[in-house]
Design a binder for these strands. Structure first.
Lengths: 212, 212
DNA sequence: GCAGGATCGTATGGACCCAAACGTTTTTGC
DNA sequence: GCAAAAACGTTTGGGTCCATACGATCCTGC
């Protein structure tokens, strides 16, 4: 039903492939199912509430954030939506062309750009969001309130941990990898020659979309 | 630290925006954190183990699936990876050009295309995957085995429910929406005029990546 | 045998997505 | 005051991603 192969078959195949190496299959299953579930949920929204209003997932999330906060600088919108500011530029342009959102430049700081919904944008969200929320409930059908809360708590824990310790960990991991033979293995010798020298300013996007 | 606004502020703002409407904030928080966590985890992998071997998330998942199953028809690879077959064509081409994977056409059915890793592809995964698994563990730091298992169980439950009931639900939701004023609202009157007539064959991608 | 249909992988177009580079505007240091 | 630095949104280039529309190949019924 779900996958082409069962869990047990997969684990067996992985074990064969990795022989004696010590692997944490529990962590593997958890992380794997995290992406599986997120993908299934997102797909469900795209195929139900979003499809006939012709909104992408990202477009909807942007509308949602701007709707909730009335108006917001693009930088913060990108952070809240979990996308890069460069991506947001394009998405906002699309939504603006459809008359759902406007961009304004505040006179006191003309570097900024502030997003806000149009009347029709607000009307759309007022009509759309309750349906969206109903599908959120649908995706959790069969779970008790207690289990849903436990799920939320666990996920929050992961997010917090990664946000607090991820950057340091990433640096360490990358250092270890660059000392290994992995890079040449991956590219086949012909190096990618990244300029790497001049880092400008703002890096790294936020980890995620929507509220807390 | 984490977001620009706190959870409580967000809920307050949502409540203001939706006044008396009945919303399930618990479901909202769970679904929201699901995406937040998935995004944080994926981002962590991209910035740690994948970055200096110059693999995208999707590229890695494709390699992983092909690695585990030795060789596999592209259709099934796409399903297992949670991407469309059209997307896979491009990704496979990229990986092939880097000498990590090869495509072969079986003589008995020349419509098919079968993927398998090259020697270097296998070597890469043997070296890379244990590091990947270590980061999976890292993302779950601080959770007991019991909580991790509970997380997995809950997520599996969601995936299963959506896979079994999603399609029907989506049809119902879309019917309800097309009876409402939402479509015109969203597009501003000027209809999108989708051809809509000729549905060919295979629709709908699989919901997810990686094992069970 | 041989049309018609089903199913395969691929090509295309448009949206998304990030990293990096860029130009403008504001802030900082002196 | 005024250059240098910082911060902003946007642009660009390359890759992913889906839906759709193919062309090619198998399969089916007659």
């Amino acid at each position: 039903m779900t996958g082409y192969y069962t869990l047990r078959e997969t684990e067996k195949a992985v074990t064969e492939r990795l022989g004696g190496l010590e692997l944490d299959f529990g962590a593997m299953a958890a992380v794997s199912n995290l992406h599986r579930a997120a993908s299934a949920v997102r797909n469900h929204f795209e195929q139900s509430v979003l499809r006939d209003v012709d909104l992408t997932w990202t477009g909807f999330v942007v509308l949602w954030v701007v709707w909730i906060w009335e108006e917001m600088e693009t930088k913060h919108v990108a952070e809240e939506c979990g996308i890069s500011k460069g991506t947001l530029t394009g998405v906002a342009k699309t939504l603006e062309s459809r008359g759902l959102l406007v961009r304004t430049v505040p006179p006191d700081d003309r570097r900024l750009s502030v997003l806000s919904l149009t009347g029709r944008g607000r009307e759309l969200m007022t009509e759309l969001f309750p349906r969206f929320n109903a599908e959120e409930q649908f995706t959790l059908t069969g779970l008790t309130d207690r289990r849903t809360q436990e799920l939320t708590r666990t996920l929050r824990h992961m997010v917090k941990h990664i946000e607090e310790n991820g950057e340091e960990r990433e640096a360490r991991v990358r250092a270890s990898i660059s000392d290994s033979k992995l890079p040449e293995l991956a590219t086949g010798g012909r190096q990618q020659q990244k300029p790497a020298g001049t880092r400008r300013t703002d890096p790294r996007r936020r980890t995620s979309p929507k509220p807390g």
